[in-house]
């Protein structure tokens, strides 16, 4: 009648094995198995790898904990596509193409989808500011957020403009991610600040959403 006989509970070796088997079932089915499926691993040419400056910017985004307050996932909800896509940028793509796609984070280690929206979702920043000179506006926003929204509780990130990048470290990082880059790109970083980098990174978000339908 009993599935597990009572004397099992007196045998620590057997209990160890049973515990390991039991915790591995869900692990294998929901985590390990999906890794072997093509869907979750498919790469798309729509989202290119990061340039050296953009990758450096993504590292700044992580270092400053932007992910503590900002998500990067436009959910398939009417209010969400209206708020983050159709009311903010120029696109004629249908609903199912403007919500967040698997390939958009294909080069992100780790993913930066986030879990909390104290500030707005950032997955479509590159769509909102898809024009020349947008860098200056984003720099101003990060320097003094309350100039744009007086009751914002976002901290000022003016100090990023005083921090130089470390090109040697960025080169190592590019190699570890297996992104293509040129030495000119790396030497170009000596003149750049963490502010330049994070702005360049932010503008990559949601670029693929701009324009007309791909179908």
């Amino acid at each position: 009648m009993r599935i597990i006989p009572d004397n099992t509970y007196r045998n620590p070796y057997l209990m160890t094995v049973l515990i390991l088997v039991v915790i591995l079932v869900g692990t294998v089915i929901t985590v390990a198995a999906p890794m072997l499926t093509p869907t979750i691993n498919s790469k798309s040419a729509l989202t290119p790898t990061y340039t050296a400056l953009q990758l450096a910017g993504k590292d700044v985004y992580q270092k400053e904990g932007c992910v503590s307050c900002h998500t990067q996932t436009v959910r398939p909800l009417q209010s969400e596509v209206t708020r983050y896509v159709y009311s903010r940028g120029s696109t004629t793509k249908p609903y199912d193409e403007v919500v967040s796609q698997l390939h958009e984070s294909q080069y992100d280690r780790p993913f930066l989808w986030g879990s909390r929206r104290t500030g707005p979702d950032l997955a479509r920043v590159g769509l909102w500011y898809n024009y020349n000179g947008a860098e200056d506006l984003l720099t101003e926003m990060l320097t003094m957020p309350s100039d744009f929204f007086p009751t914002s509780n976002m901290p000022k990130y003016a100090f990023l403009s005083n921090k130089k990048l470390n090109p040697a470290q960025v080169r190592k990082n590019m190699k570890a991610n297996r992104f293509k880059f040129t030495e000119a790109e790396i030497t170009g970083l000596t003149q750049k600040t963490e502010m330049d980098a994070i702005v360049a990174y932010l503008l990559t978000l949601g670029r693929t959403t701009a324009g007309d339908s791909t179908q």
Binding site: M35, I40, Q106, Y107, R109, P110, F111, K172, N173, A176
Partner: peptide, 24 residues
Amino acid sequence: AIPTGLFKSYHLFAGANSANVQWW
């Protein structure tokens, strides 16, 4: 993770796999 310095590394998993492993 893939280390690139004493205090810098990248998750071994990317994108949705990274998300799935992290929330597991």
